[in-house]
Amino acid sequence: MELLKAQHVSFQYENPEEQPLPVLSDVSLTIRRGEFVAILGHNGSGKSTLAKHFNAMLLPTGGAVWVEEWQTTDEAHVFDVRRTVGMVLQNPDNQLVSTIVQEDVAFGPENLGVEPSEIAVRVNEALRLVDMLPYRDHAAHKLSGGQKQRVAIAGALAMHPDCLVLDEPTAMLDPKGRREVMDTIRRLNRENGMTVVLITHYMEEAALADRVVVMEEGRIVQEGTPREVFSQVEPLRAVQLDVPQPTELCYELRRQGVSLPADVLTVEEAVEALAAVWEGAV
C-alpha cells in the first residue's frame, strides 16, 4: 500500500536576482508501507530537499506530494502530515529541545495535545524501542552522538508516525554511533514494520535497504534493489559515489578477464565467489 507519493515534483528556491536554480526536477517516487528505502546521492544532489517534501517542510513548486490521503499543500492537514512522517535530522545537537531525555521525547506528543497519561506511556515505549529507556532522566547534552540520535528517533516515534524519514542521521557520528543508529533503524523496520526513508551518502548504509534510489542534480538517475544498483559500477562512479569494496574488487577482476558474478555485494559473497574461481583454477 502506498504511503508517500511524489508525482513529477520539481522545486526551486525563489531567487529574484538570478535565474532560479532548480533543486528538484520531475521527481516521481512512491514509498510503500513497511518498505526501507535509501536515497543515495552526494551533497547538492537534491536528496535532502526531497526528504523535506515528505513532511511538508518544503512544498513543491511543480507536481504534488501525497502523504496517505493528504496532499502536502493542504494547510488544514499539515499536522497530520508531520505526525505521520517523523523526521530525524543530521545534527544530533541541534534537534533536541529539552535538557532531559524523557522531556524531549514528550515534546512531539505534547504539541499534538495528547492526554498526559498517554504521553508518559508513549515516551517509555519510544525510549524502549531505541534502547534508551535507562537514560530517561539523563541530561541530553551529556549523551554520545549515537545516543542523542536515538533519542531524536524516539522523539519522532512518540508521535506514533507511520513512517520515519532520516536525513543523513549518521553523517556526524563516529563508527560506533553509526552502528547504533543503523541497528536501531533496521530493527524498527524489520521488527516493528516501520516504513523508513534513509537519506545518506554512505553506500554501506544504502546497501541495508530494500530499495535504493540514486539522485544526481535533482533527478532520480537509478532505482532498484541494492544488488541491482551496486552491480552497476560505472554509472555510480559517474555520479561520484562509492561502490561497496567487495563489488568493486569483483568488478576490477572481471575487467581483467576473471569470470566472477556481477552482483557480489558483501564480504561473504565475495569470499565464496573468489574461492569458487580459485578452487576451479587449481
Binding site: 535530522l89 545534527n91 519522532a156
Partner: peptide, 11 residues
Amino acid sequence: DLATAMECRCY
C-alpha cells in the same frame, strides 16, 4: 536547525 526540528515535531 532547531526551528526546523521543532516544526517537524508539530510545534
